[in-house]
Design a protein around this nucleic acid. Sequence first.
DNA 1: TAAAAGCCGAGTGAAACGGTAGGGTTTTAA
DNA 2: TTAAAACCCTACCGTTTCACTCGGCTTTTA
Lengths: 148, 148
Amino acid sequence: MKFSTKGTYGLRAVVELAARYGEGPVSLAAVATEQGISEAYLEQLMRSLKKAGIVKTARGKSGGYLLTREPVRISVLEVLRALEGSTDVVDCVGSGANVCENACTCSARPLFLKLQSRINAVLEETTIGELTEDHIEQKKRIEHARLS
Amino acid sequence: MKFSTKGTYGLRAVVELAARYGEGPVSLAAVATEQGISEAYLEQLMRSLKKAGIVKTARGKSGGYLLTREPVRISVLEVLRALEGSTDVVDCVGSGANVCENACTCSARPLFLKLQSRINAVLEETTIGELTEDHIEQKKRIEHARLS
DNA sequence: TAAAAGCCGAGTGAAACGGTAGGGTTTTAA
DNA sequence: TTAAAACCCTACCGTTTCACTCGGCTTTTA
């Protein structure tokens, strides 16, 4: 019941891009350094994000990664799904397939259904834009505290 | 971000015991058969549940497992924690230790904190008693439908 | 035209998952 | 009193996932 580092790293990387939204492509190296993630590993995550239509790329010299949309129009759910495959706590709560044959008599399923809907609500209503604003504020506060 | 089968199996096993609460010890074999779980594997789960003070045992012939408390006084959170170790979505939201050194500047942490509190709320407020009642009702409905 | 960037597939050591095997010890019913 | 039913415990094991790394390729632009 843990998110893998893919989710956390990827989320942080997307926020990093969001913080520079509108300023042109950001290189992998820049994001990796800023977030303290291995470049080679981050590249894999970026590939997933690209496939999911969350980031796009500019190739060649002075190229890099960009968000495909405004940060407020990207939900956290979307990012996590791209990286983790799914955010379902058990397979049988997903829509459509994978519902096991005993679903209707499984005593734990009602709990999981309720839990999943609560989780999805939070992940869906939170946007990258929000996360980014909060993060910038937080950084400012720390800077202020350091100087005084 | 999945629960392992330990969580699901264990929850179902505890509900099974809850359904027979007050009727004396239930053998491992009975629970395993009813829930379609391997006996050897279920035993391991039962050990964890015993260590956590959720079930107790009666040894020897005609022995078996029993809940230590009324089903309504056992929360789902307690059961899942016993089996999965922790229900935290990332280590850094736990109380006390394991908060990574970059916690205060991590852009994803506020999200995880919020998510975790919602998850804990559901798992804490749901009891084995509730799950058991719902399950018994559900079984009755199916039986009725089958007969008509 | 060379250097900087992204693109891509394969490999790898460690850990967790989902069990199985095979031996205990304790209790009780016949 | 003794055999069988039940729980107790440790060890192992094949598979999958995790968290990376490596090395070579293509594209672009200063």
